[in-house]
């Protein structure tokens, strides 16, 4: 499972980075969204992988058996903030497009 998760993170990062490097705003937003997934997943697995033991306390269970709750708490807020940031840059790109007439990152169309 570790290899599966690690490779998934890698694929997400690669696709995210590629999109972040595009010339138009919308792909960049998509790239950042992919990148955010990757970062959240990455942060999450810093507590290592535990199957079938969510950190909700139950009678008669070893403390050591639970999944690490701390990265989960951090990632939970990170997901919500990630959304807020995605929304923010999306609106920023809308504003740029509407007031500049182009959605190119540099604010002007490059003539070939």
């Amino acid at each position: 499972m570790e290899a599966l998760v690690a490779s998934a993170i890698g694929v997400l990062v690669a696709c995210g980075v590629y999109l972040i490097l595009r010339a138009r705003t919308f792909p960049v937003v998509l790239g950042l969204a992919l990148f955010a997934y990757a970062v959240n997943l990455y942060l999450f697995v810093m507590g290592n992988i535990t199957l079938g033991a969510p950190p909700v306390l139950q009678e008669g269970m070893e403390i050591a058996a639970y999944a690490d709750p701390l990265p989960q708490a951090l990632v939970l807020t990170a997901i919500v903030i990630g959304f807020a940031m995605t929304a923010f840059i999306l609106v920023l790109s809308i504003c740029a497009y509407v007031s500049l007439g182009t959605d190119h990152l540099d604010g002007r169309e490059h003539t070939q």
Binding site: V5, S7, I9, G10, L21, G47, N48, I49
Partner: peptide
């Protein structure tokens, strides 16, 4: 650049996950 970044991140995640965890949790 994307491929290198992806590979590197995957490697880092992999290396961390295969090591025992010492946590304040």
């Amino acid at each position: 650049l994307a491929a290198v970044a992806g590979l590197g991140t995957a490697l880092m995640a992999w290396l961390v996950m295969t090591r025992p965890l010492e946590s304040i949790s």
